[in-house]
Amino acid sequence: MAEKTISLVITRQDTPESTPYKEEFTIPYRPGMNVISCLMEIQRNPVNSQGQKTKPVIWESNCLEEVCGACSMVINGKPRQACTALVDKLEQPIRIAPMSTFPVQRDLSIDRSRMFDALKRVKAWIPIDGTHDLGPGPRMPEVERQWAYELSKCMTCGVCLEACPNVNEKSPFIGPFAISQVRLFNEHPTGNMNKHERLEALMGEGGITNCGNSQNCVQSCPKGIPLTTSIAHMNKETTKHAVKRFFFS
């Protein structure tokens, strides 16, 4: 009986500057495999479809349960996490490529620094540190907490940036996720105390007005975060803030 196999076409790149190329692999099938276990198989036996020995494919992964966002890559044309990309549900050959909106380090490993820089720019945190005990903060209403929790599921995976037509080398757009994080931290009763700083950051270069409403982000988000609702909401908030700032201060 012929052994069942999986065929993969992987877009590879040796250094950040070198030209990408495609390499085909055929690996033995095991039940319940995902894309990560395919890559692990190639790592164990780095031989391509032509039977030539090759460099093992480099990738990043961490939690293996779709909460860390590290293993995002383009699988059969769509950006998603490799850990939840189950081989049985994928069309073969499985085409795997790095999310090329980001600088490619090597093979499938990319540099998502711009996302962390964006979070710093919009101050996506709640400043609570001080020199003395400030006591408990204000309570958050349960109804607000419920939807805010959905926004907190963002894992900075980069899928929304990869899908967005307005995130590219020509555009300074910080990306949909950062706008949604501003909504999350501005909703928090303690975070709300610094909401103006985050709104001003959204009104800056590469901020919220770079959104072109293609809405690919909300279609692509693996966590189902209502990104376009967050963007429209922050459109309202930044507009209100701009009007207030212009007329009243």
Partner: peptide, 22 residues
């Protein structure tokens, strides 16, 4: 300026709003 800032990708993301964007 805005029109040429975008990088169309309807081939890969053929959603209604993405078509409207293009």
């Amino acid at each position: 300026y805005l029109a040429f800032l975008g990088k169309q990708n309807v081939n890969n993301y053929g959603y209604f709003r993405n078509w409207m964007f293009l």
